[in-house]
Design a protein around this nucleic acid. Structure first.
Length: 354
DNA sequence: TAAGCGTGGGG
DNA sequence: TCCCCAAGCTT
């Protein structure tokens, strides 16, 4: 029996039951694939269900304001995915009469759809014989064939893509692709893989050569940046102030409190000397609560040191130079906010309940 | 082309 | 606690 045949038999017995696997609609496949980019099934599942319920079809999604889409996406990370997904929905409704393109090449042209997602939709929804390569497939193939070419290089992408395409069962490409990923997700794990349960154990070069723990190989080299965020949580008669991040940085289009960013640890006195502070509080007297809440927030290539200063003011801060939005504190939940601000607000609520 | 983009879970 | 990793894409 071929590797592909063995794999499919295993998949038909062992695959997880997941909501998007109940559907063959390109919309559902697309939605799940965008959500699952760099995201575990367990983390994305609830988001998928919420999106399908709120936006049952692509027209509903295209008609929503981007702020609502981001609010629903809040907490999932990589927010560009939500913006691109929304734009693509509008493109498909306005230019393609609400119908997805049906080929890999055409799908690839849409925003937020790269080689992986185009192959996933084309093979699963439209039965096109294109292999896909994601993190799971890199792992399975590198071990199966004992390939130590680094996966995070242009050459690596070519090499692994070729092997994946050679291995593809063109009779049922969608099933085959999902089976490859499922094997990586359930059996061929990054650490402590379950080789005794693996249907391909007799074919596995890495197991034979005892190189499982060395594969897949990565070229490495990543740098870490430290940033210091000082958030001003204003309370003026139950109102606080927020603004949408518009620049090319993290959390684009998410809302946040007035922010003073520094490139090193900064104490409170230094903060009060900043131009922003002087301008912002020029017209009012600020009373800062003594306890400052600190959160260390870890991103992939940045460590954020976030301090939240709760500040009561007698009158409204100067909004002419700094166009912040006044919102009732109880109504912040209407806006999409970064996880670390959500954590801060959660702490507040928790303390008040105690 | 390499760097940047979030968050949560697990070892 | 720290580091790795996860159904990748964009610029």
């Amino acid at each position: 029996m071929s590797i592909a045949e063995t794999l499919e038999i295993w998949y038909n017995i062992n695959s997880r039951k997941l909501p998007w696997r109940e559907s063959v609609s390109a919309y559902h496949i697309w939605l799940s694939e965008i959500i699952l980019q760099q995201t575990r099934v367990n983390q994305g599942l609830a988001y998928y269900n919420r999106f399908v319920e709120r936006f049952p079809d692509i027209r509903a999604l295209s008609a929503a304001p981007v702020d609502e889409v981001l609010r629903l996406w809040q907490g999932l990370g990589y927010y560009t995915r939500a913006r691109n997904m929304h734009q693509t929905a509008q493109m498909i409704v306005n230019k393609y009469q609400g119908e997805f393109p049906v080929t890999y090449d055409a799908l690839l042209k849409l925003k937020g759809i790269g080689p992986y997602t185009a192959a996933a939709i084309a093979s699963i929804a439209f039965n096109e014989p294109v292999a896909l390569v994601d993190g799971n497939v890199f792992r399975v193939i590198s071990r199966l064939y004992g390939i130590d070419t680094p996966i995070d290089t242009p050459k690596g992408k070519v090499v692994f893509m070729q092997h994946a395409q050679d291995l593809l069962n063109t009779d049922n490409p969608g099933l085959h692709n999902q089976a490859m990923m499922e094997l990586g997700a359930l059996v061929c794990l990054p650490r402590n893989p379950r080789c005794t349960e693996c249907p391909l154990v007799s074919h596995c070069k890495a197991l034979k050569h005892n190189t499982i723990s060395l594969l897949p190989r990565k070229s490495g080299k990543t740098s870490m940046r430290e940033r210091f965020f000082h958030y001003l949580f204003i309370n003026h008669n139950g109102f606080t102030y927020i603004k949408r991040r518009e620049n090319k940085d993290i959390w684009k289009l998410l809302y946040e409190f007035p922010l003073i960013e520094t490139d090193r640890e900064t104490d409170f006195d230094q903060l009060r000397q900043t131009t922003f502070w002087k301008e912002f509080f020029a017209k009012t007297d600020e009373r800062v609560e003594p306890q400052v809440q600190y959160f260390r927030h870890q991103l992939t290539h940045q460590t954020l040191h976030c301090r939240f200063y709760t500040i009561h003011t007698a009158s409204e801060p100067a909004l002419d130079k700094h166009p912040y939005l006044a919102v009732k504190i109880a109504e912040i939940s209407r806006y999409a906010i970064p996880r670390v601000i959500d954590r801060f607000l959660g702490n507040l609520q928790h303390e008040r309940l105690l």
